[in-house]
């Protein structure tokens, strides 16, 4: 059902992204004022290329990783990652997933929808997240910035996948059983 090596390296990538978020990403945000979070891009990648179970499992575990180092309520990010992933998964059979325009739009949709779903969930359970002009500005800016990064992330993860997985056997259109034998 689920491709285990793929599950493993997607989790590893998720772990690295969360680690970057709490170290370099946070410093970058303080210096530039721009919030860059690469997790939505990983969710887009999984929703457009992986099986639905892989997407849900990796999204849930990365959400737990994220919440464990944040002041978020535990589990809130997992739900928002899965829901955002499902939204993208629901239209993936209708679009050309390899087109950068589709990846760009999906990156934008996911980067904006994840914070919004998280915010709604936090409000729903009675938490008081800060939602001021700066937060809205950050969500929009990071949405557009992440959208530009999405095709790049697709390239990087594809390269990692090709490195860790067996190479695909290229099928030739030649079929020996259909060869016309001549000269007999």
């Amino acid at each position: 059902m689920t491709n285990l090596p793929q599950l493993f390296y997607l989790l590893l990538i998720g772990y690295v992204i969360v680690a970057m978020n709490i170290t370099f990403g946070a410093w970058l945000r303080l210096v530039t004022g721009i919030y860059i979070d690469l997790i939505p891009l990983l969710i887009v990648y999984m929703a457009l290329t992986s099986e639905i179970t892989t997407m849900a499992l990796v999204g849930a575990i990365i959400g737990l990783f994220f919440d464990s180092v944040s002041a978020n309520v535990l589990g809130v990010s997992s739900i928002s990652f899965i829901v955002a992933g499902l939204i993208i998964y629901s239209y993936r059979h209708l679009v050309l997933r390899k087109l950068w325009q589709i990846q760009y739009l999906s990156g934008l949709l996911c980067s904006v929808s994840i914070p919004l779903i998280t915010f709604i969930l936090l409000k729903f359970i009675g938490a008081e997240p800060i939602m001021n002009f700066q937060a809205v500005f950050n969500i929009l800016i990071s949405g557009f910035f992440n959208a530009f990064l999405t095709p790049l992330i697709f390239g990087i993860i594809d390269w990692i996948e090709n490195t860790f997985n067996y190479r695909q056997v290229k099928m030739s259109s030649f079929r020996p059983d259909r060869e016309i034998k001549r000269g007999h």
């Binding site: 709490i22 946070a26 979070d37 994220f66 002041a71 978020n72 997240p129 939602m131």
Partner: peptide, 13 residues
Amino acid sequence: IAREPSLWWKGFH
């Protein structure tokens, strides 16, 4: 050693 990763909260480790 590390900073809060989400938008909503303010904190560090």
